[in-house]
Amino acid sequence: MSEKVQKTVLYALLILGAITMLIPFVWMLSTSIKSAGETMQMPPIWIPEDPKFENYIEAWNAAPFGRYFLNSVLVTVLSTAGELITTILAAFAFAKMEFYGKNILFTILIATMMVPGELLIIPNFVTLSRFSLINTYAALIVPWLASIFSVFALRQTFQGVPNELYYAAKVDGSSDFRFLWSIMVPLGKSSIVAIAILKIIGSWNSFMWPLIVTNDTKLRTLPVGLQAFTTEAGTRFELLMAASTIVIIPMVIIYIFLQKQIIAGISKSGLKG
């Protein structure tokens, strides 16, 4: 096989694969602007004759999606901001400070990553109901304010910052706290951004926990609200697809703009395994 034929076959296969990956999205978008009659046509129509963009408005108003959307934004923003703070502080301590019990503590924390989160749901539910926090925003946010995975990743980055810098700052009379925020954090920016984006995606898409700790409609996040909407929408697939698009689009936009950081974050997590 000549080089040229080889390359052509390679590209043909990759394009075929890419189409396969994209078809569900195209199908979702295409259905979302069909009329009810057009969804039930075989062979399927890809581009509806008279695109019904008003399906989005109808879906948005058919359930309190505005509320769900705000809830998702609130939960995502607060849990990401909170996790970043706990992570930056802890990673700094592990990377640059000396303290009793450092190694054993680190080992214990790493070991907890082995335990499937699903096992923790039951006692966490009990704990939260003990504090009467079921059906509150706190239940959606507080358990997710720390991640040992993030601490581990950022510790690696912070360790890469030369100790000399740290000692020099100390000699100059700079406090640890100031050093952390004015030197370490800017230097670790790319890692911090990667951690934040992965957290945002995870938090936006999370389902099982919000499903369990909320049964108040007002507290539903988008995935839970969307799932509940399926019973109301029934076979109105154009509305379901419009609603699914609303849930998916924000993360797709973030991904398109920040894919370099996302992929760097995933790659790093792969490297250290």
Partner: peptide, 18 residues
């Protein structure tokens, strides 16, 4: 190829349901 990974499992499962 990476795109499906960032999507909500619930939303994309509904798409597959369809």
């Amino acid at each position: 190829y990476f795109l499906p990974f960032v999507t909500s499992t619930v939303a994309i499962s509904l798409v597959w349901n369809w």
